[in-house]
Design a binder for these strands. Sequence first.
DNA 1: TAGCAAATGACCCAAAAGGGTTATTGACAG
DNA 2: CTGTCAATAACCCTTTTGGGTCATTTGCTA
Lengths: 228, 228
Amino acid sequence: MGYFLSANYLRNLYQKESMIRISIYEDNTRLSQLLSLMIENTEGFELMACHENCLEALQNTRTERPDVIVMDIDMPQRSGIDGVIEIKSHFPHIKIIMHTVFDGNEHLFDCLSKGADGYILKKDSSTRLIQAIKEANEGGAPMSPFIANKVLQSFRKPLIQEDFNLTEREIEVLNLLAKGFSYRMISIELNISVETVRRHIKNTYQKLHVQCGPEAVAKAIRGGIIQS
Amino acid sequence: MGYFLSANYLRNLYQKESMIRISIYEDNTRLSQLLSLMIENTEGFELMACHENCLEALQNTRTERPDVIVMDIDMPQRSGIDGVIEIKSHFPHIKIIMHTVFDGNEHLFDCLSKGADGYILKKDSSTRLIQAIKEANEGGAPMSPFIANKVLQSFRKPLIQEDFNLTEREIEVLNLLAKGFSYRMISIELNISVETVRRHIKNTYQKLHVQCGPEAVAKAIRGGIIQS
DNA sequence: TAGCAAATGACCCAAAAGGGTTATTGACAG
DNA sequence: CTGTCAATAACCCTTTTGGGTCATTTGCTA
């Protein structure tokens, strides 16, 4: 090599640095072989390893230093969700794409809350997964359309959201109640008499159709009347 | 025409039926002209109308019968969010894609909770919008990568979620409390003495660092100990 | 086997909560 | 200008809560 670095060497070096390092967790050997092949034959992708379970996810990740992990959920001994928890708690910057057959709410929101960066269904084309890896690596959040829709739907509040018609003051009182204030403390906080506080609370209970504080607070939080 | 329908006529008819009907709400004339052009020149797209505000969104929608609506947020007199509320409450099947410069949380989650089906930033390429229209029409949920990421992030619970170490029984009691059960009712429900119920609740308060029912329930719901 | 955590139960007692009834004032709509 | 509604306030009385202290049983673990 010496002093003379060929253009080729430099290009390879550059390519190496811009390669997306990928690890796979998938217990179905057929599928993992297919994925491996696809990744190895995609320009800019570098397959670090293929694992059949998450038992040593942390060790693997430490040595492989992947940019993106493709993670199945249903694997023997240790589910992919546990893998996500473990990896994300130590390497939050590594992108994890769930790649699974599960299209139900349970697993989906469980994974997302644990920090998954994407969620691609296995029934999607493999091309979609390749594209998803790129997206995740660029900071996006690749999701199958069906999944994206579920996620959006989870934000939609039922349009027929009961309108309890609480007044501003009543909501104010309810908030303090949820903070652990007693009637007396509320009255001091709001500069009104304890009797008035009681009045507001009584009205609130009627409107919410509840009969005690804990129930009122639960209903108010769940109904979005007071922020969670 | 008579009895003889030309092949051409039939093909046109078929094409018309498979066309995606699109309406635009955008107060920036320059941009709306650009979008109109792009849509008119995209195969399978049919531009129904371009509006500068949402004042008559409902009327417009009734006559135009669009499949997909591209909706700006910041428009004079009536915001796109009001438009979404109105249109979605009458035509929930019509897909609405927000097309805006706002990338903050406020507008985003507001729109999503009101029923928007997609959220594309104006800084994205117009091509992306065209693609998004197709996706929305096919039941997907097109989002700019940055937006998709925000949405996913909103699911991530802080990993350092305090562990209050409540026992199963304590959680059970807490749940009943949130349902409006008194200590006596809980004791009957669980077939234990009122004193034991009190005991569990006292322990719970200590663990949660609260001093009354409403506060405990609020903290439990917000902390995910009991479901919202 | 000793020890710990969870679940159970009891007693005392003061403070807080909840239900009912009634009333005044100010603001806003018809 | 009259009625409705929100906010304010008071009184009565019973039940519920919540804090403190103490004690027993069971099952799992070090």
